[in-house]
Amino acid sequence: MIPVKELVELLVKALVDRPEEVEVSEVEGERSVVLEVRVAPEDVGKVIGKQGRIVQALRTVVKAAAAREGKKAVVEILQ
């Protein structure tokens, strides 16, 4: 099994000022996996990026990893 949650954690922690406040929860369905990302309030912008560029790249990578197991991945940044 591909550690999609660990993948999201690794990426998000590398983007923020307060990695210790990063929390990722994973809700796994039959055909999909939803990853909810919580970061410190001042780090939300760092995970989203200008015009959503960072979160878009994050989604591309996570979707690619999940697709290998035939799953769709949804990444949500909670704010």
């Binding site: 590398a14 560029r53 960072i54 790249a57 591309t60 990578v61 690619a64």
Partner: peptide
């Protein structure tokens, strides 16, 4: 496209 997304995130990190 995955390679470019990874590369972008690595640059930010």
């Amino acid at each position: 496209r995955t390679l470019d997304a990874l590369e972008y995130l690595i640059n930010v990190a």
